[in-house]
Design a protein around this nucleic acid. Structure first.
Lengths: 191, 191, 191, 191
DNA sequence: GATGAATGAGCATTCATTCAT
DNA sequence: TATGAATGAATGCTCATTCAT
């Protein structure tokens, strides 16, 4: 009977929302966005179908919020905020984080790859993600330029393509992927 | 007996089937497999829904036949059949073909990436594709071993991951991708 | 090139039609009328779908012609044409034929029961069948009247209901049905 | 938590489910299971197609639940639970109930006969129904044995076949069937 | 007579979304 | 806030039937 405080409500909201998002990440990653139903999400989260629409405008909105949330959660792992210039050490650390991050939460990563290679869906996030990553591009360009590369922009493309390819291959065979060997090759080549 | 000869029927069949496959490649590539309906395919192909089931047992079968067909169409481009040993020249040629192939038919390539990163779908082809590619793995291992790499298996992983990553990035920004520069980096590193 | 004679055509027609009917009896009996497709019939008969429509106006017409054909084929087994009056011997013979007929062609019989208990379908034949059986009703009525039954019409109903029930039960468990014992009970009671 | 109590939901569910079942009995009886569409059922019940799948897993499940429900509803009419031994009176009562039951709800009975003579469908229930009826078989065997029949098992077969045949004939001509006369014949013969 | 490609209405089923409570 | 009954459009698929050859 006692009315709940604003804070209590806020907490309840956050809890429910987090639960939904957590469950949805796993399901979307395992079965794909289009093949996961709101019904399944609600069942797995132990809540009612209707409640999901209390927190998200639509299934698409749920996907959007989820992806952005995951991204925001991931960015601090790179600890790039106050970096003005990339040292070799920092570059290696970033590379390591990029690889570790896949092993830490393969579900999430599988979700990323399935989303970002899915035609049409990618468009929902392109802009937001660009906004998040753009500030750091000059750091890498500068890094490669200082290393003496004539075309540092191309080098950055090459580096990020390689990184993406490796992340993909880790997912494809997470148990047998020769992480240490590949990491070494990667560092030797780019750092 | 027959009003049309077997050959006539065969031709009609081939024509219709090809039209369906052609339309389906584009739609699957543009909107994804799960989000493309049989109805849309039939509409775009200018035929009736039912006819598709005259040629394919199911939507899944359509996808399967399409992917395998595209693969078989692609394999000869690499001209690997009679190769017993990879020379540097051949290795470079293969690398070039791997890049060119994306530009030649981005639709098809987008389809590949969307299919092979889509959870659950990949399983339909894993075996078939393994069977097609497996014979050539030793060639590459041998190549890297002769080049003096201590761990040629890891090197092959690294190489193919890099290649996949680049193909992905080409698709993501096909107009601005610095193909020549990246190609050079790739060859310098692996060939 | 030589034109076929009318008789030859007639023969071809009859052969094809018989083949279709024969296959359809089995399929309808095994899977039911509604669940058997024209396509299956044509496949099992080794002919084309279209040909069926050369001989039958529709699926329903096929059913109609089949049932009536089977009936006409069955009637002579009872050899009732020239009977003016039922003797006890003839009555017993008719009863025996009624039972034997089920064992001789369970497919056909299963078809009958499935058709005649199927709402809506029965109506297609009611009239035709009545026309075929009606002439013999008085014979049975007379038979029971002579045996001293006060209500021979009711007795006929009782007799034919019993017969139908037994035929049904034979079909339900054709291997274990105690035919001889039941036959004896039947004869003792009605003959 | 809940806006409606569990009981309220239960009631709503029961009401909808009953309405669906009620409509489906009639339609299945009139047109047959295979020829009745979910769409027709929903239309006749005044609800949406989708709702049916809220209560039944599939069309087959709907049939299953319906048949078993009807059976369970019917069994108490025979009041056999506590019977240890069949008296003549009880036997006659059971026979009467078996006949009355058809008149009470011809729709339901037509459904039974159409279902149980329909190839393939019967299999869905065979086991369940056997489980329900098996316990009472010995009672009848004992009854016929005590009446001096040498082969009481055959006698039971004969009795139940006769009963089934009569039920069938009642359905075929419910208005003119001479129930009283036939009932008398039946009782004279078996009781 | 005979073929089978082609049609399109219809089917069982799924699912994002709404809404009364 | 939270529920789940209810909707209806859409999906993959089937099938009786037509028709050019």
């Amino acid at each position: 009977m006692s009315p709940r405080t604003k804070e209590q409500f806020e907490e309840i909201r956050k809890e429910s929302k987090d639960k939904i998002l957590k469950v949805a990440v796993v399901l979307f990653a395992e079965k794909g966005y289009a093949s996961t139903s709101i019904s399944q999400i609600s069942k797995n989260a132990g809540i009612s179908k209707g409640l999901i629409y209390n927190y998200f405008e639509s299934k698409e909105d749920l996907l959007r919020q989820m992806i952005l949330g995951l991204f925001e959660e991931m960015m601090p792992r790179f600890d790039l905020k106050d970096i003005k210039k990339l040292t070799r050490e920092k570059f290696i650390e970033l590379t390591d984080v990029s690889l570790d991050i896949v092993y830490e939460n393969p579900h999430r990563w599988r979700l990323y790859t399935s989303i970002f290679t899915q035609p049409g869906i990618m468009d929902l996030f392109k802009e937001d993600l660009l906004k998040l990553t753009m500030p750091f591009i000059p750091l890498f360009i500068e890094y490669f330029k200082e290393k003496g590369h004539k075309n540092p922009e191309a080098m950055l493309r090459y580096y990020s393509a390689t990184l993406d390819g490796i992340q993909l291959h880790i997912l494809m065979d997470i148990e047998n992927f020769p992480l240490q060997d590949v990491r070494e090759l990667l560092i030797n080549q780019f750092a």
